Computed example of a mutant assay.
Amino acid sequence: MIKKIAVLTSGGDSPGMNAAIRSIVRIAYHKKIKVVGILNGYLGLCQNNMIKLNLSTVSNILNRGGTILGTARYLKFYKKKNREIAIENMKKKGINALIVIGGNGTYIGAYKLYKMNFPCIGIPGTIDNDIYGTDYTIGYSTALETVVQAIDKIRDTSCSHQRISIIEIMGRNCGDLTLFSAIAGGCEFIVIPEIPYNEKKLIDNIKKNIHLGNKNAIIAITEKICNVKELAKKIEIHIKKETRATILGHIQRGGSPVSFDRILAFKMSLFAIKLLLKKKFGKCIGIKNNKIIYYDLNYFSQSKHTKLKKKLIKLASNLY
Rank of each mutant, 00 (worst) to 15 (best):
K207Y: 14
I273C: 00
E84K: 14
I203E: 01
I273F: 02
N209E: 11
S160G: 09
I221G: 00
L43H: 11
G41V: 06
I313F: 07
G109T: 10
I313P: 08
I101H: 04
P196S: 13
M1R: 11
T137L: 05
M268I: 04
G94S: 04
L98D: 04
M170W: 04
I121C: 08
R244Y: 11
N54C: 13
K224P: 00
G186H: 03
T142Y: 11
I169G: 02
K267W: 06
D261K: 04
D176N: 13
P119D: 13
I192F: 03
E145M: 13
I219T: 03
K153W: 01
K112C: 12
C174F: 07
I247W: 01
A6S: 14
K234Q: 13
P119Q: 13
H305I: 11
V147Q: 08
M170S: 04
G186Y: 08
A86N: 00
Y320V: 11
S23T: 15
K234M: 08
G185P: 00
L319V: 15
H305C: 11
N318Q: 13
Y29W: 07
Y295G: 05
D296H: 12
E188R: 04
G175F: 00
M116L: 15
D13T: 07
L297E: 09
G133D: 07
K283C: 09
G133T: 04
I247S: 10
V35T: 15
E145W: 10
I190W: 01
I2G: 06
Y78A: 09
L113H: 07
I127R: 10
R155W: 03
G66K: 09
Y78I: 10
G109R: 07
S317D: 03
I21Q: 02
K280R: 14
P196A: 07
I169Y: 04
K80H: 05
E199C: 10
A86M: 01
H30E: 15
K93Q: 08
L43S: 12
I121M: 03
I164W: 13
V147N: 06
N63W: 02
I313Q: 05
K92I: 06
L98R: 04
K234T: 13
I183T: 08
K283H: 13
G16P: 11
T57L: 01
L39A: 05
Y74A: 02
S59R: 14
L277S: 09
N129P: 04
R163A: 02
C226G: 09
L276G: 11
M50R: 05
L270M: 12
G133K: 04
G186T: 01
I108T: 14
A86I: 01
R244H: 13
P124C: 12
R163I: 01
A97K: 03
L231M: 12
K215E: 13
I61V: 08
T134I: 03
E168Q: 14
K311V: 14
D296M: 05
Y136P: 03
G70A: 03
L308N: 12
I24E: 00
A272G: 08
Q162Y: 12
A184V: 07
I33T: 08
A20I: 06
N298P: 03
I247K: 08
S259Y: 14
D176T: 00
R244S: 14
R73D: 02
S14H: 10
